[in-house]
């Protein structure tokens, strides 16, 4: 068994564990009367110009089809309560799917109280800035931890299977 080979590969494993991988994560914002979908790679980069398909429950026909904008956003106006499904495909083999459950409340939201005082100009700018910053990083720290844990889990599982296979083969030889 080559110790140096193992040590160097383990170093590679440790180093690469720190780097983020890809895969698609979808966020859904219910903003009656429309739904805003945000698509991003797991690394946080917005998934722009990806194909989006919207379907309602068991309907065979597609409700809406289109593409995300350059920031990975897509918007549609559902017309009835129930289970909606959004599928996003970047055209390179990466796909994401999200179910959106809408009840009657979405279509009949409580009337918003009328604001008498308009927010000041600098407050508006601040809000817009915050929203932009939120969109830049669509994944949370929890998502990142979960992703890293999955990477470690996968690598450990492969190593455990290798260990078991090696032991079994050794026993067979004896």
């Amino acid at each position: 068994m080559n110790k140096r080979f193992i040590i160097s590969t383990l170093c590679l494993l440790t180093w690469t564990s720190l780097v983020f991988g890809h895969g698609i994560s979808l966020t859904v914002e219910e903003k009656s009367p429309f739904i805003l979908i945000g698509a991003a790679y797991h690394g946080g980069k917005a998934l722009g110009n990806a194909d989006v398909t919207i379907r309602f429950d068991t309907d065979e026909t597609v409700f809406q089809a289109g593409s995300t904008d350059k920031n990975g956003n897509f918007c549609f106006y559902p017309d009835r309560p129930g289970k909606w499904t959004a599928s996003v495909d970047d055209g390179m083999g990466h796909r994401g799917k999200k179910d959106i459950l809408l009840d009657d409340g979405f279509f009949h939201p409580p009337a918003a109280p009328v604001k008498e005082v308009q927010p000041k100009e600098d407050e508006k700018v601040k809000e817009e800035k915050e929203k932009k910053e939120e969109k830049k990083v669509p994944i949370t720290r929890n998502d990142m931890c979960c992703y890293l844990l999955k990477i470690v889990l996968g690598a450990v599982l492969i190593l455990v299977i290798t260990f078991l296979l090696h032991r079994w083969k050794k026993k067979m030889e004896k």
Partner: peptide
Amino acid sequence: IPKMGIFAAALFIVSLIHFPLGATS
């Protein structure tokens, strides 16, 4: 077997490194 297993684990992780490039990764 151990060499192959360790390389498979390395391959598993390396394939998950993502570099943004243009409109894709």
